[in-house]
Design a protein around this nucleic acid. Structure first.
Lengths: 232, 232
DNA sequence: GAGTGGTCTAGACCACTCA
DNA sequence: GAGTGGTCTAGACCACTCT
């Protein structure tokens, strides 16, 4: 007789692992399970809702709860500001601005930000260090229509990512993770050889539906990794 | 007067975006907010709980709810089976096993799986194709102590990842995402040039506390990307 | 129409940690 | 001791989609 939603969730997971409800099948309804476990329906509801959030089941009104498990693995990833990551690693963080200027966006950037080519954007190129090794090279484009204040800000000392987090907090985001070979230009900026592998994170953010910024974060593959750990 | 937890959550997000409670400050308690919005405390509780899951606030009993926003970005990632990903992309999937054998594990693998070097493991090297291009090269080690059935299974036609998902469903997992340059061996197996960038996913899984498998999935960087989209 | 999950309410008790 | 969030309950109504 399990009463807490954690117990119910664990019990359901055990039965799922045991194969009682194979992938593709439909689980019993909430009322029946609540009856089995002798608890309120809301308790079962919460357990099942979390299983759905974990990607283990899918739920529909009227159709019931279906076991998916096996389609793919869900995982939660945290992408930190360079300063924070470097300091978490116990290293000394240093920031350096290589270029900052106003300009009209190249086609690719205009597309990404949903702007036309006459709009004005801020381009920022900067570098983040961990101890005395380049940690991240950052190419950023800021939509001045969405963030006109940026026109007056100097990023000589202040990482634009940190500034934007203050100015437009809680924005929506899209991330794209890829790998690439370093071009000659990027290699020299990261103290690498041409062709060395880079781990690249591209991020676009929106604030109330309007594109704010598009940024490309390049890391020497050697020494950079994203780690996730998922229990479920 | 918002009554639904979604409305409450949205209202709180708006106030957070407006800077009413700056990062580091403590938000009002659940009872007060429930009073403000004219709803039950549980409704506020759910809204705040989701904000906490989104990484926007942190909550402690007695200490209250603190605004974090700005530490890092949380995102949800789904890593699919090769077959599923390839077919989702509208391409034709093909599987090919390059090697399968029993052996004792090299030190690195023994460490990863928590085994001693006399234990027996199954080594599988295989390749996944998308149309007629290599999509993923897979190096896998299976702990036969945890999965003795694997000793009798042929992976000539069946991807070991898919088999394991059936046999040990709902296991715990750890993922490490990195980039690397292709070695000569891996380059030829992926129809690449030596040094071309690879996007590498390493995954380890456990079932009821026991290490099941360790796998290294290597993708040509050109044409591989992981994408996440987060609204909040 | 009926049965599923989705959600809200009001009240209650618990667990924790601060003063 | 007091006040915070964490959770459970019982009952209710709603939204959806199947037949």
């Amino acid at each position: 007789m399990a009463t807490g939603y954690r117990e119910v969730k664990a019990a359901l997971l055990t039965r799922l692992r045991a194969g009682e409800w194979p992938a593709g099948s439909t689980m019993p309804g909430e009322v029946q399970l609540a009856d089995e476990y002798g608890c309120a329906r809301v308790t079962v509801n919460r357990a099942l809702r979390e299983l759905a959030e974990d990607g283990i089941v899918k739920r529909w009104r009227r159709r019931g709860t279906e076991v998916v498990a096996g389609r793919g693995r869900h995982t939660r990833l945290t992408i930190r500001q360079a300063r924070q990551q470097v300091e978490t690693d116990g290293k000394t963080y240093r920031y350096e601005c290589l270029r900052q200027r106003l300009r009209t966006p190249p086609v690719r950037v205009a597309d990404q930000l949903g702007l036309n080519r006459e709009a004005e954007v801020m381009e920022v190129l900067c570098r983040h260090w961990a101890d005395d090794r380049p940690y991240q090279l950052e190419e950023r484009w800021i939509n001045l229509t969405a963030v006109p204040e940026a026109r007056e800000v100097s990023f000589a000392e202040l990482p634009p990512g940190e500034w934007l987090l203050d100015v437009k907090p809680l924005s929506d985001a899209e991330h794209v993770l890829t790998a690439a070979n370093a071009t000659s230009r990027n290699a020299s900026r990261l103290s690498l050889d041409i062709g060395d592998a880079l781990f690249v994170i591209e991020r676009r953010t929106w604030w109330q539906g309007q594109a704010v910024t598009s940024v490309r974060l390049m890391h020497p593959a050697n020494g950079f990794r994203l780690v996730t750990r998922d229990v479920a």
